[in-house]
């Protein structure tokens, strides 16, 4: 157990260093903050809405993540393949699961850091009124878990190719599918003709319905499990893809 933890830590540490050693980290954080500020203040008119909560802030997160999480995930495997360093990583005395988990955790922590840097938002709602802090905490938790689910998709697509751009596009398209699946406008369009079971299924497999309740402060175990199973599924696909490539 201890050696498992140390191995995962070694991999995660290297990945985190890789983010901060290149400009990617800083660009990502700045863009994340700018986009969340822009959507919240300008698109949602947060000040005029006059509500002391962060719903209009969290509401945009799926749309920010759809671009930024694939951008963070794309290099995880594709870059190692392109450089040939995968040959070093996979011949170290590490289990594939340790490497996969280490990479995932590094990227997830990194997104978590960017998310954490939005805390001035919290300070301003506290300053402006009496917000429901529980709902805000729940929103952050939900957002973090959702980022993990996006990342599950991104690591899997990164393992498919040695081309980061291809990985990025595949991840964006896949994430878009899961956002649109449960997106109210989509549901409205199909509700006229689609059978009820299809509508329910789409709502259930989509990100939005699960995220919106968490971001309102309703922590439902099923939503948590939904995001967790997404991550596990992504990591599992990731290991299958790696394995398949070594088998070939």
């Amino acid at each position: 157990m201890n050696s498992f933890f140390n191995a995962v830590k070694a991999v995660a540490k290297r990945e985190l260093n890789a983010y901060f050693n290149s400009a990617v980290a800083y660009v990502f954080i700045v863009i994340f903050l700018l986009l969340s500020g822009f959507f919240t203040f300008y698109v949602s008119n947060w000040f005029e809405a006059g509500q002391a909560d962060l719903r209009s802030f969290f509401q945009w997160h799926p749309w920010i993540y759809i671009i930024l999480v694939p951008a963070i995930a794309m290099r995880l495997w594709a870059e190692e393949k392109r450089l040939g360093t995968l040959e070093i990583v996979l011949t170290l005395p590490l289990k594939p699961s340790e490497v996969i988990l280490g990479k995932f955790i590094a990227a997830w922590l990194f997104i978590g850091l960017a998310l954490g840097l939005t805390f001035p938002m919290v300070l301003s709602v506290v300053y402006l009124g009496q917000p429901d802090l529980g709902a805000i905490a729940s929103g952050y938790l939900g957002s973090f878990l959702m980022a993990g689910a996006f990342l599950g998709i991104g690591t899997a697509t990164s393992a498919m190719t040695s081309n980061q751009v291809v990985s990025f596009i595949l991840a964006v398209v896949t994430c878009l599918f899961f956002i649109l699946a449960g997106y109210p406008p989509t549901i409205n369009i199909i509700s006229g003709w689609a059978p009820l079971w299809l509508i329910r299924t789409l709502e259930n497999i989509g990100f939005i319905s699960h995220f919106s309740s968490v971001s309102r402060g309703v922590i439902d175990l099923r939503d948590m499990l939904y995001f967790l199973s997404f991550m596990i599924l992504g990591l599992y696909c990731n290991s299958l893809l790696l394995d398949w490539q070594r088998q070939r």
Binding site: R14, N17, A18, N21, S22, L83, G84, T85, E87, I88, T91
Partner: peptide, 10 residues
């Protein structure tokens, strides 16, 4: 390995 792969950013 062949061609000595390394991480250029480290």
């Amino acid at each position: 390995p062949e061609n000595a792969p390394v991480y250029p950013d480290m």
